[in-house]
């Protein structure tokens, strides 16, 4: 559904992505794992067209070439991105946030039939948002903001949803809820690119896995190759265990 090949890029002189290949199969979840600073967020930014400088590489969505398009054209083509840190518009109300999420939908009016229908769907999926629809998004709790961000991204009915650390800063119960929601969306047929630091939980719902390190893909493939827990140690406890054995001097 989504295929990214040979993406290279960064911020000005700073290269953070080096020839990254990653893909998402239709109706599946690809989890991108890796330590902080490995380039995971930059990868999503690059796919969404938000990374300031992208050198080489190709982004294809459902057979359509998105390379070089500005972000809004990519969203229109069926890509959706939930950014890190629940970037909802704090000063706007929940409903306004949702309507803005549906910006890419047709119709001139704020409440065009298409947007109205999407709004209704969002409220059905997240009843909590309906209750708080007139509240400024900034007054929601962290978990509610994350749900709002996801609901916003779903408004235009995307083909591929990209999520950047949706569990960050959330209580375990909420994390479970969020990831269950992600799995449910997949089961409904959505293709998902998930960047997640909670490796165990990400692996639980993922179909495919890509491990990033130093701006490159260090390993990738179907999940069952990553099931034994070694990958977690590699990612979070360092690639070479030698560092542990040197100990304190």
């Amino acid at each position: 559904m989504l295929s990214v090949t040979g993406i290279t890029g960064g911020y000005g002189d700073l290269r953070v992505l080096r020839e990254v290949d990653v893909s998402v199969r239709a109706g599946r979840i690809t989890a991108v794992l890796g330590r902080n600073g490995a380039g995971k967020t930059s990868l999503l930014s690059a796919v969404a067209g938000l990374l300031p400088s992208v050198g080489a590489g190709r982004v294809e969505l459902d057979g359509r070439d998105l390379t070089g398009l500005p972000p809004h054209r990519r969203i229109r083509a069926g890509l959706a991105l939930v950014q890190e840190n629940k970037r909802v518009f704090h000063a706007r109300t929940v409903e306004e946030n949702l309507l803005l999420g549906g910006y890419a939908l047709g119709g001139r009016g704020l409440r065009s039939p298409a947007r109205r229908a999407a709004l209704e769907q969002a409220y059905e999926r997240f009843p909590m948002l309906r209750e708080r629809r007139r509240a400024p998004a900034g007054s929601l709790s962290g978990g509610q903001q994350q749900m709002l961000a996801i609901a916003q991204a779903l408004m235009p009915g995307p083909k591929v949803l990209m999520l950047d650390e949706p569990s960050a800063g959330l209580a375990p119960v909420i994390v479970k809820e969020v990831l269950a929601m992600v799995a449910k969306l997949r089961d409904e047929g959505l293709s998902i690119l998930l960047v997640e630091q909670r490796v165990e939980q990400a692996l639980e719902i993922a179909d495919d896995v890509a491990v990033m390190e130093g701006g490159r893909i260090a390993a990738s493939g179907p999940k069952n190759g990553f099931d034994d827990g070694a990958v977690i140690r590699e990612i979070y406890l360092g690639r070479s265990d030698e560092r542990l054995t040197t100990g304190k001097s």
Binding site: P71, H72, V88, F89, R92, Y103
Partner: peptide
């Protein structure tokens, strides 16, 4: 409020 987030919502900033 947040240009990048707006762009990520499909707004042609």
């Amino acid at each position: 409020e947040d240009r990048e987030a707006a762009a990520a919502r499909g707004i042609n900033v």
